[in-house]
Design a protein around this nucleic acid. Structure first.
Lengths: 211, 211
DNA sequence: TCCTTAACGCGACAACTGTTGCTGTAGGAT
DNA sequence: ATCCTACAGCAACAGTTGTCGCGTTAAGGA
């Protein structure tokens, strides 16, 4: 719209992720802010998690938080990024059924655990681009890592070769998300087992082999 | 906390649902507001749907909207309640597989259709009690009505007696919700079919019969 | 017809969101 | 030691959310 380059210094949007001065003030700010987020989440829950509250609690200025994290979703994304183990792998229980149940138990835990980080992130993701992107990346990574349980099952002859790993994994896990997040039924841990078993059965019958 | 009853009139929370004076001003207000909600949703999308915008558009005062619907989620809940056909029934295609596919197509449509009422409601439900409750009730009703497809399948001998209808229906539909709402993959209509087929297969194998 | 009162209109308010232009400060390279 | 610059602090702003007390209107019964 305006042709003239701004005479004043552009406020420059800094990067939330890789800090360019890793040992310095920025890193301290990051620490204090993310700590404040988790503390608030634990003590007062998602509803109390406002940018202002985080700024107050951390002693970092409002503006700085907005510039580096953009909104509450961005803050949660930051916490998730930090909490995500780079070396996570699905358990190997020796059977597809067992592997899927183990995965589903983790999902169930993540969705019901305290602090409600995952739930809060999902809620935020509907309004916050940073949160949506963080979740997308997180799930993409997890589903990729989980594909190995399907490969193992194929190797064992439990399911036909050509089984679509992602489709099978989604079929196994989706009911847990659905019951807990959308239907909000007080689903117990048994659901994790039932859903995993059903998916394993369908997979064995060749339901996830593309024509 | 305070012992003395308030000297002034209590602002009284009116009921959004059953209007006590059905022919009068309240009913007109309701009409104008809900019409404004759908109009805004169609024309400008969910993000533009603010209480203020609805109030302006409808000519009803802000305060009145807040009092009767509480928040944006409440407004969406009102529209859903009105749009929900009291006589909805799942199609009867003659096979469990076909019935589930038909249901899943409707789910897919609801989640991708325009206006994005369902999607908006789900997004809102994470922050708005009225929206959450409206969805819960809506889904409870729909899953109840859909149970008949399972009963028919049992009668036809497609699945064992004792099959848990709700569990089967959740297994069939959850992947569609999961892909479209949470994973936000651009899932096509084929997903509806795949998910339904997998659930039907698992059901035939007895995956949804409680021990 | 009049009276009661549920429900709407109005203005003010506090809190949170998100942005902008500027100044201040400390890391890290030279 | 000194400069450069990325980043933090600051103050002010406009917009949205949600609430409150009070005055006003009109629906529906007596």
């Amino acid at each position: 719209m305006d042709e003239s380059p701004p005479a004043t210094r552009i406020p420059d949007p800094p990067s939330p992720g890789p800090v360019r001065r890793p040992g310095g003030r920025s890193a301290q700010v990051r620490r204090r802010v993310l700590d404040a987020v988790t503390a608030l989440l634990v003590e007062q829950g998602y509803d109390a998690l406002t940018v202002d509250a985080v700024a107050d609690r951390s002693g970092v200025h409002r503006t700085t938080v907005y510039r580096r994290w953009r909104d509450v979703g961005g803050l949660l994304a930051g916490v998730l990024a930090e909490a995500t183990g780079e070396d996570w792998r699905p358990r190997d229980t020796g059977s597809l059924d067992g592997d899927l149940v183990a995965i589903n138990r983790e999902v169930h835990e993540a969705l019901t655990g305290d602090p409600p980080l995952t739930g809060a992130l999902i809620a935020a993701s509907f309004r916050s681009p940073p949160a949506a992107e963080a979740l997308r990346a997180f799930w993409a990574d997890r589903y990729d890592r989980c594909a190995v349980v399907v490969h193992r099952a194929v190797a064992r002859g439990e399911v036909p070769a050509g089984t679509d790993a992602r489709a099978l994994l989604v079929a196994a896990t989706a009911p847990v998300y659905h019951e807990l997040l959308l239907l909000r039924s007080g689903a117990d841990a048994a659901l994790a087992q039932r859903a995993a078993r059903a998916a394993a059965l369908a997979a064995a019958a060749g339901a996830f082999v593309p024509v």
